[in-house]
Design a binder for these strands. Structure first.
Length: 206
DNA sequence: GGTATGATGGGC
DNA sequence: CCCATCATACCC
């Protein structure tokens, strides 16, 4: 089988206009898009987005910007299309893309990818995908239209009929905001997080 | 199949 | 103290 990954370098990166729209629209439209990671030695890793969550700014009690602008959350107050990466539970990182215009501190959390080509680990789950793609806080503020971390458009996005939604994961503390269906995923895709564990998933594919 | 819990460090 | 998590342990 041919490796499809190098051709992805030629695809068009998503523009700032794509991100500077209502966050729920951006979240849904990110399903099916491709995340590309390039290393200094030329190694290229890629995955197709299959699961995201929308975080809706200062009124959303699950959104980090709801507690005000701090050094950590400052990037969310800036223009759309940049990375917001934070550390969670002392051992993992989570990748978000900043949405909406300057002054509207919203973001979309990338929760799972479908691997394109060979990857050195799992990309199902926000912590796992950051570990596998070596994404940490040093990438906060990075413009996602450029190397070494790029979001690119591809010809066949997720058809709207294949998109399912649910409450967000791990935000039970957020009161009524915990219930809102702001997690979007490609229905039935085996790479969505919280499905069968990796051992069984590997077994079922043999 | 399921739920419970420890690891581990920065943010507020 | 709080976590936008994961892997492992253990129970059914």
């Amino acid at each position: 089988m041919e490796n499809p990954v190098p051709d992805l370098l030629l695809k068009t990166p998503l523009s700032r206009d794509f991100y500077e729209r209502p966050t729920v629209e951006v979240a849904r439209d990110l399903l099916g898009k491709v995340l590309l990671r390039e290393y200094d030695d030329g190694q290229l890793l890629a995955g197709r987005i299959v699961e995201v969550e929308a975080y809706l700014g200062v009124h959303d009690l699950a959104c980090h910007s709801a507690r005000g602008r701090t050094a950590r959350t400052a990037v969310m107050f800036g223009p759309g299309g940049r990375a917001y990466v934070y550390m969670i539970y002392g051992m993992y990182h989570c990748l978000n893309v900043v949405t909406e215009a300057e002054g509207s501190p919203c973001a979309v959390l990338i929760r799972a990818l479908e691997p394109l080509g060979d990857l050195p680990g799992s990309v199902s789950g926000p912590g796992r995908l950051c570990r596998t793609l070596s994404i940490d806080r040093s990438l906060t503020g990075h413009d996602l239209s450029r190397s070494p971390l790029t979001l690119v458009d591809i010809p066949s996005p997720a058809p709207p009929s294949a998109i399912a939604r649910s409450p967000r994961i791990g935000v039970g503390y957020a009161g009524e905001w915990a219930e809102k269906p702001l997690r979007f995923y490609i229905d039935g895709n085996p790479w969505v997080s919280g499905q069968k564990n990796p051992r069984k998933l590997r077994k079922s594919r043999l």
